[in-house]
C-alpha cells in the first residue's frame, strides 16, 4: 500500500525504523498488563460480572489516556523542529509540497502511531467488554474522547515544533503545556475555590464554578466523570452558561478537536513565516 502524501509515507518509514516506537509499545503493554491484573477482582466468582467488566474497562482506559497524554508531545513536538535541527527543512520547502501536505503528513503520522497504541490495547478492552458491564455507546464515547485528545495534543505539538528551532525546546514547551492542562488545572481550580470561598467570611458561599478549568481542559477529569451518572447541575458550566447542558467528556472533546482545527489552520497559513522564526 502506498500513501498519497509523501511526507506521511516518509514519516512512517523513519519512525517505525527506530527502536523507540517498539520500546514505547512494549513498555506500554507491560504497564497495561500490570494494571489489568491489579484491576482483576480477587474474589472472582462472588463479584458481579458487570462491575468486574466495567472496572477492567476503566482501568485499561485510564492507562490508555495516560499513554496518549504523555506520549503525544514526545512524538508531535519533534515534527518540524527535527527538520530544522537536522537542516532538512530547506530541501523540503523547495519541493512542490504545500504547507498543508507537510503539516497534515506530520500530524497524521503521529496520530497513526497513537492509534497503533489504541489498537494494541484492544485485547484488554475486549475482555472487559466480553465480561459485560460496558455498553457499546460508552466505548464509542471513550474512543471519541481519546481521539479528540490525540488530535488536540498532536496539533499542539506540531504547532510548537513549527515555532521553535531546537527539538528539546519544542519538547519542553509542549510537555509544559500538557502538565498545565492536567495537574495545573486541578491546582488552579483548588486555588480559585479556596480564594473565592474565603472572600465571604462567616457565610458559606460555594464558588459556583467548581472545577471550571478541569471540566473543560483536563482529559483525566473528563474520563473519570465519563462513567458516573452526573446530576443535571453538574454538567459542563461553560455550555450551561449558553443554555446547553453537555457532559464533561463531550465538552472536552469539542474543545480539543476545535483547538486542533484552529492550530492546524494557523500552522498551514503561517507555515513559511513560522519556520523562519529565529533564523
Amino acid at each position: 500500500m502506498r500513501l498519497k502524501n509523501p511526507v506521511l509515507m516518509k514519516e512512517l518509514r523513519e519512525w517505525m525504523r527506530g527502536k523507540r516506537p517498539f520500546a514505547i509499545i512494549t513498555f506500554y503493554l507491560l504497564l497495561l498488563t500490570g494494571v489489568f491484573f491489579l484491576a482483576w477482582p480477587r474474589d472472582f466468582g462472588h463479584y458481579p460480572e458487570a462491575n468486574m467488566g466495567r472496572q477492567i474497562f476503566m482501568a485499561v482506559l485510564g492507562v490508555l489516556m495516560v499513554a496518549v497524554v504523555f506520549i503525544t508531545p514526545a512524538i508531535a513536538s519533534g515534527a518540524i523542529a527535527l527538520e530544522k535541527e537536522r537542516r532538512t527543512i530547506d530541501l523540503l520547502q523547495v519541493t512542490l509540497l504545500g504547507p498543508s501536505e507537510i503539516i497534515l503528513g506530520k500530524l497524521v503520522s503521529s496520530v497513526m502511531y497513537l492509534l497503533l497504541i489504541v489498537l494494541a490495547s484492544l485485547p484488554f478492552v475486549s475482555i472487559g467488554f466480553i465480561v459485560g458491564g460496558v455498553s457499546p455507546s460508552e466505548i464509542a464515547k471513550a474512543l471519541l474522547l481519546l481521539i479528540s485528545v490525540m488530535l488536540g495534543l498532536s496539533a499542539l505539538g506540531v504547532f510548537v515544533s513549527l515555532i521553535f528551532k531546537r527539538i528539546y525546546v519544542a519538547n519542553g514547551v509542549t510537555y509544559g503545556i500538557v502538565v498545565i492542562l492536567t495537574f495545573g488545572t486541578v491546582i488552579l481550580d483548588e486555588v480559585l475555590r479556596t480564594t473565592f470561598y474565603q472572600q465571604v467570611p462567616g457565610v458559606y458561599l460555594e464558588w459556583p464554578y467548581q472545577m471550571l478549568l478541569s471540566r473543560h481542559l483536563n482529559p483525566f477529569f473528563a474520563m473519570t466523570t465519563m462513567f458516573q451518572s452526573i446530576p443535571p447541575g453538574e454538567f459542563s458550566r461553560l455550555f450551561w452558561l449558553f443554555g446547553t447542558k453537555v457532559p464533561p467528556w463531550a465538552t472536552l472533546s469539542l474543545i480539543y478537536a476545535g483547538t486542533a482545527v484552529v492550530l492546524i489552520a494557523v500552522s498551514i497559513r503561517y507555515f513559511d513565516s513560522l519556520v523562519k522564526r529565529g533564523e
Binding site: P6, G18, R87
Partner: peptide, 29 residues
Amino acid sequence: RGLLGYMPDFFGMYDSLKVWEYLDFFAAS
C-alpha cells in the same frame, strides 16, 4: 520551485531511509 534544482551549502538527510527511498520521497514531492 518546479523549474529549479537547489542544493544548499549545509544540509541534513533522512539517515534512516535507504538511498532509493530518499530519492523516491523527493520524486513524489
